[in-house]
Simulated scan of single mutants.
Amino acid sequence: MVGGGIGGLAAARGLQLAGWSVRVLERAADLESLGAGLSLFPNAVRALGALGVELPAGRLPGPGGIRARNGRWLSRSDPAAYPERYGAPLVAVHRASLQRVLLEALVPGTVMTGARVAEVRAGDGGPLVVRHDTEELGADLVVLADGAASGTRGLVTGGRPRPVHAGYTAWRGVMEAGPGTAVADGATESWGRGERFGIVPLADGRIYWFATANAPEGGRSPDGEHAELLRRFSGWHAPVPDVLRATDPGAVLRHDVYELLPHPRSYVRGRVVLLGDAAHVMSPNLGQGACQALEDAATLGAVLLPAGADVDAGLAAYDRARRPRARRIARRSAQIGRIAQLDGRFSSAARDHVIRWTPDLLTRRQLDDVLQWDVPARLG
């Protein structure tokens, strides 16, 4: 396993459940709990269930929806109906919480940090050979889960595809909920002209927030990202300015948004397989990046059970199950991003009007395609 992020750790868990001996090679010196919040939609919660991983208990998001920058509601949603409709709830957690439970689910010693993979090659009539900083390892299967900026993706896809800048950047942060900041229980996203701000209560009581703005690739704010956010969003509806002021300026993260273009023609080449962002970098507009990585992991474990069965048939089944679905969700997320980031006065006003008058039934049907998912049948 190349990469010890959420997808890599989850895939290691799935393969260990299937009877495989797994080694995770992570180039970082330690598994820092970087990142902010994650929305785990019912499809991801079901994937975690298939992996035998339980999330820490906590509060679930209440009613929320999309608002204009002045606070007017454009659409509303209530995830209370998710368990009955999709078989699992929506759970919002800090990335560190999910990373911790995945690590605890693995066989001790599974993860090797400080291991930068330099080469993956075919052995002399035997298994694959993975060479990293200090040794060479033989492997019957190599899973590439080293993220959006994957240095190994080309082993499966060749020179293309590659991450392409989506035209906007994203900031993220987490604040401690206190008596001075009144935040609703539900997740909300507010849309302006080329800018958005989202607020998501986490299960542990903290508040995760994110913001987007149209911006050139690689841009940075000369006096700090926190100051930039206050300039952009201090005039928005409550509690947006309060959430920003209550956030530690040094804890604000900024990353440009990317999409993988064109989508890979296959996630598999021989016994080497792509998983997570290495396979399908997608914009965050559906909140499905981590969710799709967890689906990948649960699917891979399912189709490769039992260990030693027909691996090639299992990998072909993985590719058939995962690639069309991930491509469809990535495309839809990109479309939503283009609409949400409209910055013209008339185009953004027309967008808001359409959202307000879109029937709830149509919205639910579109959501069904994303959230109604089951682990595929096992082979063998």
Rank of each mutant, 00 (worst) to 15 (best):
151 G>N: 03
262 P>G: 04
357 W>N: 11
258 Y>H: 09
40 L>R: 03
241 P>S: 06
43 N>C: 10
194 G>K: 00
359 P>T: 01
288 Q>C: 08
217 E>H: 14
342 L>C: 09
125 G>M: 12
344 G>F: 14
99 Q>N: 04
233 F>A: 01
114 G>S: 03
310 D>I: 09
47 A>Q: 08
53 V>N: 06
133 D>C: 02
26 E>M: 08
338 R>A: 13
336 I>S: 10
136 E>P: 06
275 L>V: 14
269 R>S: 15
3 G>C: 12
282 M>H: 07
272 V>Q: 13
256 D>I: 13
279 A>S: 03
11 A>N: 01
64 G>W: 11
281 V>G: 05
184 A>I: 01
53 V>G: 13
252 V>G: 00
107 V>Y: 00
358 T>C: 13
156 V>G: 09
9 L>G: 10
62 G>M: 03
227 A>G: 04
248 D>P: 10
252 V>D: 05
97 S>Y: 04
254 R>C: 06
57 A>M: 01
189 E>H: 06
55 L>Q: 05
161 P>R: 01
142 V>I: 09
285 N>D: 13
322 R>L: 00
117 V>E: 12
226 H>M: 04
56 P>C: 05
309 A>V: 00
364 R>F: 08
185 D>T: 12
97 S>T: 10
356 R>H: 08
244 L>C: 03
52 G>Q: 10
91 V>A: 08
11 A>M: 05
336 I>E: 12
280 H>T: 06
165 H>T: 00
136 E>L: 03
225 E>H: 06
1 M>I: 02
200 V>K: 03
182 A>Q: 14
344 G>N: 13
108 P>Q: 03
279 A>N: 13
273 V>K: 07
145 A>Y: 09
150 S>V: 02
183 V>K: 11
368 D>A: 08
17 L>M: 10
374 D>R: 15
45 V>E: 12
235 G>T: 15
74 L>I: 09
156 V>S: 06
343 D>K: 00
138 G>C: 03
122 A>E: 15
52 G>E: 08
287 G>Y: 02
8 G>Y: 06
159 G>D: 14
24 V>F: 10
